[in-house]
Nucleic acid binder design. Structure first.
Lengths: 250, 250
DNA sequence: CGGTGGATTGCGTTCCGTGCAACGACTAGT
DNA sequence: ACTAGTCGTTGCACGGAACGCAATCCACCG
C-alpha cells in the first residue's frame, strides 16, 4: 500500500541478518541505491538503524527498545518469568513461553538449556501449529468450532515421520490434549527433539499462553520426558497464579 | 527525509506502549486517520503490527523476530551468556551486559535479580554516560583524546547527590577506572542502587562490552559491593575468553 | 597522479501519498 | 425501534514527495 514504507521494512528485514552496505541493500530490495540511502537516513534519524562504519549499516537500538517495551506490556511474560526460570534451573532443559496471536503461535520468552546439545529457537519466532506442543495446548483451549475452522486452514507439512498430516488426526490429538491437560510433541517437528507443554491461565481461567520443555532424545527417553510432566504442571500453575488465575494453586 | 516512513516509525513508537486505536494514533502522530490506516496496512502486511480486535492495533511479531535475529548475530551476547548467567546465579543480583554503539551505551542483555527489590531496566535501553558503571568502563577504554571529546559533549544531568557533574571530575574518574580495571556507580544514577562493572575484551584485546552487577543498597553496603568484584572480574575474564580474548584466563 | 569502487547530491518527472468528504458498521441512549 | 454518535473504511482529485538518472565527491590503492 505504501511503497516507501514497504521498502523500508524490507531493508530492516535484510539488516536483521547482519550489517549490510548500501548496494547490498539496494540489490536485495530491488531499488536504486539513492532510494535506499534516503530510507536509511530516515530510519537512522529514529534510531531504527545505525551506521556501523563508513559503509555498513546495522539495526539500531530503537528496535530492541520497542520490542522490549512492548514485551513489558505483555504481563504474561513478566508474571510468568520466575516460575519458568525455576523450571529451567530445576530441569536444565530449554523452557519456552508461547502465546497465540492473530492466527499463529509465537515464542515470547525462552530460557536456554544448560546442556551442550540444545534446541535452536529464539524469542519472536513463530511456531507451526500442527507439530509443536505449545501450539497444541493453545489450539486445544479454543472452543470446538474455532478449532475445526483452524484445523481446516493448516498446511500439514510433514517435518518428520511422526508429524501429524491430517486435520482429523490433529483434532483427535487436540481432544486428548484438552482432556489430560498437557500436550506432547513426540519428534513431530524435529527428529531429535521431543517436548511437553502445558497451559498458563489468566484471571478468567482462559488459556493465555503455553509453557514447554524441549529435550533432545539423546538426553531423555520418552518415559524420562513424561517424568517432567509433574514439574511442568506445577510451573504452569505457578505462572497462572502469577497472572491472576485464582484457582490455579491447589 | 521520507515522510511516510517517518510517520510509520512514529506509529510504531506509539504502539510500543500498548494497543492503540486508529484515531489515537492519528492524533499522536498528527496526521489524518486515513493516512494512519494505510500505513498500518502496510505494516501489517509485513507483520510489524497486528490487529488486536476490531479497533486496536498492537506491535506484531516481526519486531521481536528482527530484534532477536539481530542479537543472534552480535556474538558478544551469545558468547558471554553462560558466564553472565553463572554470575547471576552465584550472586542472585541483577547482571547487565552493555556495549558502546554510535555515541551511546546500550544494554544488550540482562539477567534478573532473584530478590524482591530489583532494578528496573530492559534490554535495548540506553544508559547515560556520566552516571553508570558500564558507561565508565566503556568510555575509559577509549584512547585519551576520544575520551576528552566525548566528555565535553556530555550533558551532566544530576540524578542524585553523588552524580558526577563536570567533565574534569568525569575524566579523573575514568583514569581511575582504567587504572584499576573496574568501575563503580556509587548511587550516582539512582539513590538506592549501586553497581560495579568490568570490561569484556575481544580477540584483539579491545574492550567490546561491559558486565555489571547492580545491587540495592538495602541488600549490600559499600564493602559488600566491593566483595563482589573478584567474582565480577572472573566473569568478565570468562566472557572475554568466550569472545576470543586469548590472554584473559590467568 | 590517475583509476576504481563506493557514497552522496541535484534535478526533472511522475506516481504515490495525502486530506477531504461521503459512506458504512456498530454502539448506546431514550 | 429510532436516532445520534463514534469509529473504521472507501473514492477521488490534487500536489508534493519519492523516485531513478547522471554527475560529483571522496577514500583508498597502485
Amino acid at each position: 500500500m505504501s511503497q516507501s514504507l514497504d521498502r523500508a521494512l524490507v531493508l530492516l528485514d535484510a539488516l536483521a541478518d547482519g550489517p549490510r552496505t548500501l548496494d547490498q541493500l539496494a540489490e536485495q530490495a530491488g531499488v536504486h541505491k539513492t532510494t535506499v540511502l534516503r530510507l536509511l537516513r530516515t530510519l537512522e534519524s529514529r534510531r531504527f538503524v545505525q551506521r556501523d562504519d563508513a559503509r555498513h549499516y546495522r539495526l539500531g537500538t530503537a528496535l530492541f527498545d520497542l520490542a522490549n517495551r512492548s514485551l513489558d506490556s505483555r504481563d504474561v511474560r513478566r508474571a510468568a518469568e520466575p516460575a519458568l526460570r525455576e523450571l529451567n534451573e530445576l530441569t536444565g532443559h530449554t523452557v519456552h513461553l508461547a502465546s497465540y496471536e492473530g492466527g499463529e503461535v509465537v515464542y515470547i520468552d525462552k530460557f536456554e538449556s544448560r546442556h551442550q546439545v540444545r534446541m535452536y529457537s529464539r524469542v519472536g519466532k513463530r511456531a507451526a501449529l500442527h507439530c509443536t506442543a505449545v501450539a497444541k495446548v493453545l489450539v486445544a483451549a479454543m472452543d470446538p468450532d474455532r478449532r475445526e475452522r483452524l484445523a481446516a486452514t493448516i498446511d500439514y507439512v510433514p517435518m518428520t515421520a511422526n508429524t501429524i498430516t491430517t486435520a482429523e488426526a490433529y483434532l483427535a490429538e487436540l481432544a486428548v490434549v484438552a482432556e489430560r491437560g498437557y500436550a506432547l510433541d513426540d519428534s513431530e517437528h524435529e527428529d531429535f527433539i521431543h517436548c511437553v507443554a502445558a497451559p498458563v491461565r489468566g484471571q478468567r481461567g482462559g488459556v493465555i499462553a503455553a509453557v514447554s520443555v524441549s529435550v533432545p532424545k539423546v538426553l531423555l527417553d520418552h518415559d524420562g520426558l513424561l517424568a517432567l510432566v509433574p514439574d511442568l504442571l506445577r510451573t504452569a500453575a505457578r505462572a497462572s497464579a502469577a497472572c491472576g488465575h485464582t484457582a490455579a494453586l491447589t
